[in-house]
Design a protein around this nucleic acid. Structure first.
Lengths: 226, 226
DNA sequence: TTAATAGTGTGATAAATATCACAAATATTT
DNA sequence: AAATATTTGTGATATTTATCACACTATTAA
C-alpha cells in the first residue's frame, strides 16, 4: 500500500488536527493517496460511495447531471474534503468530482471515518463546522443565482476565483466558457458576450495564461448590483 | 423555567434519540420551548446566534435578504433542526426563520449542543447525516433552479409541498404568490400566470382552503421537463 | 506537420420573463 | 359592518437570455 505518513502530512484538515497518534496509524492503514490529471474523474455520480475523499492539492469541480445538462455545483480548492455529503447523505454518489488541474486525493475508508466521528468529538465537531459553512455559502449563492442577471453572476464568479481560489488578481482560468455557463446557469454564448464586454471595457484582461482583473472595484459594483 | 421533559418528548430528532438520561436532564435545564404564531420571526438574520433551534411542530420558511429582494431558501416541516448551519457556521445568523403556521420551537443552548457533539458520537453522527442530506437536497435544487423554466419550477414546488411537507394531494398553501416567487426566483405575476394556467387546464384546483393536485403525473412530467 | 476535434465569438432571431399599470378580490383591522 | 391594507390576475410592453447558424481559433491526435 502507500508509504506516506498521514501524521506527517502538512496539509491536514482542521478535523484531522484532532486525531491522535494511534488514530493516525489506523488512518494510514485505511486510506490511499491517488494522483489525478486535469479532466480525470475523482468521484463518479451514481457510483456507490464507500469512502471519503480529501483533496490534498489541486482544484476540482463538483458537478451533477441536471434536468437538461451538466450543473457545476461548486469549485473547490485544496485542502478540503470533497465528498462528505455524498458519502454520508446517501448510499450512492449524488454528484461527481472532476480535477480541473493536477490533483492529489486521499481516499479514506468511510467506516473508519464514521468511527472517528463516533469516538473523537473534536474531529466530529470540525467536520460539522465545515459542513455548516458550506451550507451557508450555498444559501448565499442560491440567492445570487435567483436574483442576479448574467453580468452580475460573471462578475461574482471572477471575484470569487480571484479572492477565494487563487488569491490573486491574475490567475489561470480552469473553466471553458461552456463550463462557466454550467456553473452560473447561462449559455456559453452569453458567458462569452459578457467576458468580451468586460475585456473591451478594460475591466479584465484575457490572455493565454488566464485572466487578470483590472478593475476589481467595478467588478464588485457590477456583482453587487446584479 | 419550562416544565416539559425533553426525555418524554415524542418528537425527538434522530440525534436526540442517542442522548442518555443524564444528558436529557442537562438538556431540560438549558433549553426553552416557545410557541410562535404564523408570520412571527423565530430566527433573525444578522442577530447573534447563541442557540440551536429545533422545530417540534409546524412549518417554517428559511429566508434571507438577497441582492435585490427576499430569497426563501427552503420550507421546513417539523420535526427538524432549523438553525444548525447558522449557529455553527458563523457567529451571526446568516438567514432568518419565520413561521408559516403556528409552530413550537425548542431553543437549545449552543454550548450544550456542542458539548453533546464532543461527548456523544452517535448524536454527532446523526447531526452530521442530516446536514449531509440537506446539502444534497440543496445541490439538486440548485440544478433545478438554474435549468428549469418557471412552469417546471412551479410544478416541482407543488409536488414537493404535496409529497414532502403535507403528504397529501390536498393541502393548505401557506405561501402568497409573492413568497412562492421568492422561493423559486420568479416574479409574483409569473407565478400567478402559471398557477392560473394549471387551474384552467384542470391540472390543479385552487380553493380557499388551499390547493388540490388533480393530475400529479402530468405535474411530474412538467417538472421533469423543466 | 497535418487532420480532426473542441472551444469561442458574433449576428440574427425567438422565447422566456420582468416590469408597469390598474382593477378586482380577499383579508385584516377598526 | 365598514374601512383599510394586502394580495391577486391580467394586459401591454420592455428586457434579458437562449437558440441557431456559422466562421474562426486553439488544442489534440495521428
Amino acid at each position: 500500500m502507500n508509504t506516506h505518513k498521514c501524521k506527517d502530512c502538512l496539509l491536514k484538515s482542521a478535523a484531522a488536527l484532532n486525531l491522535n497518534d494511534s488514530e493516525f496509524e489506523i488512518l494510514e492503514g485505511n486510506s490511499v493517496q491517488v494522483n489525478f490529471k486535469k479532466g480525470e474523474i475523482i468521484i463518479k455520480q451514481n457510483a456507490m460511495s464507500l469512502n471519503v475523499a480529501y483533496l490534498r492539492t489541486g482544484i476540482v469541480k463538483l458537478h451533477l447531471q441536471g434536468p437538461s445538462r451538466e450543473k457545476i455545483l461548486r469549485i473547490v480548492k485544496a485542502p478540503a474534503y470533497i465528498g462528505i455529503p455524498t458519502t454520508f447523505g446517501d448510499k450512492i454518489n449524488r454528484f461527481s468530482v472532476t480535477a480541473l488541474e493536477e490533483a492529489t486525493v486521499c481516499f479514506i475508508d468511510s467506516t473508519l471515518f464514521r468511527n472517528f466521528i463516533y469516538t473523537n468529538g473534536k474531529f466530529a465537531y470540525e467536520i460539522l463546522v465545515e459542513l455548516c459553512r458550506n451550507e451557508l455559502i450555498d444559501y448565499q449563492r442560491s440567492a445570487s443565482q435567483a436574483q442576479k442577471q448574467i453580468t452580475g453572476l460573471v462578475a461574482e464568479t471572477l471575484l470569487c476565483m480571484s479572492d477565494n481560489i487563487y488569491e490573486s488578481d491574475n490567475f489561470n482560468f480552469p473553466l471553458t466558457r461552456s463550463e462557466m455557463g454550467d456553473l452560473i446557469g447561462a449559455s456559453r454564448e452569453s458567458v462569452s458576450r459578457v467576458l468580451t464586454d468586460f475585456s473591451n471595457e478594460k475591466i479584465i484582461e484575457i490572455h493565454s495564461n488566464g485572466i487578470s482583473l483590472l478593475k476589481k472595484d467595478l467588478l464588485k459594483q457590477i456583482s453587487d448590483k446584479g
